[in-house]
Design a protein around this nucleic acid. Structure first.
Lengths: 155, 155
DNA sequence: CTTGCTCCTCTAGTCGCTAGAGGAGCTAGG
DNA sequence: CCTAGCTCCTCTAGCGACTAGAGGAGCAAG
């Protein structure tokens, strides 16, 4: 076994492996104050405890659910004050849910349009290519207006 | 009428209004070589022709469909060579379709999880808040693995 | 004692814009 | 002709959430 560190503490690499968050990302979270700066070993290495590991798992899960860093910051503050009412947490989750629903709707419209493009393509030459044609002629499609995905159209 | 420019040419502002692409974004497209640098008036202002307007509409439409700039660059090159086979355009559209389908699937899973959070929330205190609880305990949810949305989890 | 892994800090780059400063030109009204 | 107010110009910097790489130090095993 390779345990030189005190029991119950973890290196940044171990924290990364156990949480699924990459090493530079953990350091980044520390930098922006999402994760507290952990104590260091003699050699200057970060040494994480169980609470840090839980916090990191929380962050990771929240990021997976698409919560923004600022929302996670708020959620973490709420978590640290368990006797507060949870209306704020509820509101954040509701907002996220609404956003996700909007995104699904617009991606579904988008999917239909992409399918028309792909299915209509005769696999011949560009001149007769439905993909290019549909892109060139906006008027041809039934358009759902506004950008497909808010906050950076495509990603 | 306020037409001082030669007939059939457009200022950047007109191009922006007609395409729905913002002025700085048009300049940005020029900078990255997606849109050719147009001729200038005596006073140094950009003067767009009908072909530019079509190209801009094409770009805008493709961005709305979530194509990345590099994909659009390829599509524009294809458009300029109509006797080429359109397999490449087809492939780009297919890739995009697959990505959109993946995104819809993962957003749908996400929506279910958010709904569990929101519906389970008793609107009491943080200590008993299901939103916080689910985020804290990853093990509690049926997880779809990998980040919710590739290339920047949440957007 | 050397090999090779992990860790450290720091800077710069990614994508696709967006915002703002500071200035010049252009047009309509007086 | 003059001025007000719009649009346009260039340039730099910033956004979010990382990611990549340089250059160096520590640390455990053989």
């Amino acid at each position: 076994m390779s345990r030189t560190e005190p029991a119950g503490t973890f290196t940044i690499g171990e924290a990364a492996r156990s949480s699924g968050v990459k090493v530079p990302t953990i350091r980044y979270y520390e930098e922006i104050g999402l994760l507290p700066a952990p104590p260091r070993t003699e050699g200057g290495r970060r040494s994480y405890g169980a609470a840090d590991m839980r916090r990191l798992a929380f962050i990771r899960h929240a990021r997976e659910l698409g919560f923004e860093i600022e929302a996670i910051r708020t959620l973490l503050q709420l978590q640290d004050q368990p006797e507060q009412p949870c209306a704020a947490a509820d509101a954040i989750a509701r907002d996220r849910l609404i956003e996700v629903e909007r995104r699904i709707a617009s991606l579904t419209a988008l999917k239909a349009e992409l399918q028309r493009m792909v299915e209509g393509c005769s696999h011949g030459h560009v001149a007769a290519c439905r993909v290019i044609e549909i892109l060139a002629d906006h008027g041809e499609c039934r358009h759902h207006h506004g950008p497909a995905e808010p906050g950076g159209i495509g990603r």
